[in-house]
């Protein structure tokens, strides 16, 4: 590699054959470059009489924002072929930070397009990327790599795991696009749960997403979320959980209704295992002194003849479909 100073205007930034990273220049990098310029050379190589960037996309972006016209570069000889140059791009980044799933997919796509044999990618590259060295993982990554940019950005920013991407890909393209609009601004865990829930409901019922969200419980929060009301996400997730878990949801609602009907004083609290694995009630009493404790126990004791208690225990021990 030869050190040289390159003009930004000489770089063909449209040629992204070696790019697989997705981070943009952030404010820290901008401040740094504004203060001292680009100190670490970018890597370039000549292709068809133009300089093509191999590595240093964030620095270039920041340098342009700061109005720099030239910057230091290491140039790889033109005679070095694309696959070897891509290895430089890959390993130059590999040591710096872990890649997101979207970046891994793009890197794998490059290796694949540069004619590295599938078995070599599986055996050599996937383990480097901490992915299972299996053919189906290669196939999944190749599928992810051709998703539209906005999908890749969400997968990248929210650090998706392969299983979520696999579920997303199981939806037809139009449903995928709809789902993306729905979850784009949610946290990773919310995105994962929404996708998993719709995936499971769709498999279970055979219905389209459009039909699924017609249900009253789902329609409201879905509509609000699509309008950008992020607070509706929790409502949607609660509705999806209810949809996926009708038996336990029904029992919990019935138990909570009985607890409300009991009308216990504030200082007596009832609790139970929400999964109903342990069919017992836990009773908490709040007291600052003996008289308060007496009062709480008396009110609890006085309520024991109420039929709600019996119904509560029946619900806790419920067996059925």
């Amino acid at each position: 590699m030869v050190f040289r100073i390159v003009k930004l205007s000489d770089l063909n930034l449209e040629d992204r054959r070696f790019r697989f990273t997705l981070n943009s220049a952030d404010s820290r990098l901008l401040r740094s470059i504004r203060a001292v310029g680009v100190l670490q050379p970018v890597i370039v190589t000549a292709r068809q009489d133009r300089q093509v960037l191999v590595d240093g996309w964030r620095r270039i972006e920041a340098a342009r924002s700061c109005g720099l016209e030239e910057l230091p570069a290491l140039e790889i000889a033109e005679k070095i072929g694309d696959p070897a140059v891509f290895l430089v791009a890959f390993f130059e980044n590999y040591g710096q930070r872990p890649f997101s799933l979207a970046e891994k997919s793009l890197a794998i796509r490059k290796f694949y397009d540069f004619r590295l044999r599938a078995n070599e990618i599986i055996e050599r590259i996937l383990p480097l990327l901490e992915l299972p060295p299996e053919r189906r993982m290669l196939e999944l990554m190749l599928e992810v790599s051709v998703l539209e940019e906005r999908f890749l950005q969400v997968i990248h920013r929210r650090d998706w795991k392969p299983v979520t991407a696999e579920q997303l890909l199981s939806f037809p393209p139009e449903e995928r696009a709809w789902l993306l609009s729905l979850i784009e601004k949610l946290t990773h865990n919310q995105q994962r749960e929404v996708i998993e829930s719709f995936y499971s409901l769709k498999r279970k019922t055979g219905k389209s997403l459009e039909d699924l969200v017609r249900k009253e419980k789902l329609a409201g929060p879905t509509e609000r979320l699509l309008k950008g009301e992020i607070s509706a996400a929790d409502r949607l997730l609660a509705a999806l959980r209810e949809e996926k878990s009708p038996l336990l949801s029904g029992l919990r609602q019935a138990i909570e209704a009985e607890v409300r009907n009991l009308g216990l004083p504030e200082k007596v609290r009832l609790d139970y295992d929400r999964n109903l694995e342990k069919p017992v009630l836990r009773i908490g009493l709040e007291a600052g002194e003996v008289t308060e404790l007496k009062e709480a126990l008396q009110s609890l004791s006085a309520s024991l003849e109420n039929p709600e208690w019996r119904r509560l225990f029946q619900l806790l021990h419920y067996e059925g479909e």
Binding site: R203, S245, L247, N275, E277
Partner: peptide, 28 residues
């Protein structure tokens, strides 16, 4: 297969299982 789209709970050991009321019902 649709068996994985049933209602499950995560048990203490992390496995998915049918909810206890249903398991008890099946066994009984």
């Amino acid at each position: 297969s649709r068996i994985y789209e049933h209602e499950f709970t995560r048990s203490a050991e992390g496995k998915y299982r049918y909810p206890r009321p249903l398991r008890q019902w099946l066994y009984n």
